[in-house]
Amino acid sequence: MVIRHREANMAVNLTDLSLPQLEGLKTQLDQETEFLTSSIGQLKVVQTKYVEAKDSLNVLNKNNKGKELLVPLTSSMYVPGTLNDVEHVLVDVGTGYYVEKNVEDSKAFFKRKIDFLTKQIEKIQPALQEKHAMKQAVIEVMNVKIQQLQQSQQSSQMVGTTKA
């Protein structure tokens, strides 16, 4: 039922819909905006991870070669070590594959990922805005309808009391 309204929504005037229909439309738009918002949130979380990974690559430079560091074996236990290789890192490219890359390539890899995510977010954002606008319009029409309903109820009550 609701889907059919949605398909026709572009052509149908919102004011032609009844209150329950509007209510259904609003719930659906609510769900859609929620889904899109959470998608954007997830993309942003992943993007931050890539940004952090890219930033931490800056520590791997020639100046830091041979320096001592503490390697975390668990979250509460560290062992001392020396930074031996500042040129290569292992990057997770997905589905269980890890690739050994040099620092420059890895930076390029993360940049690609960050750009890709930015593009995805930019794709979703307009859709979200559109849904928001539609929801706002639906709510407005609903408010008008509710007011009309209340007024007509009041006036019919008035008629009732005057008769009595």
Partner: peptide
């Protein structure tokens, strides 16, 4: 990603 690699990269 794999297509961008060459023989200097090791895959695990």
């Amino acid at each position: 990603e794999l297509d961008l690699l060459d023989s200097t990269n090791t895959v695990y």
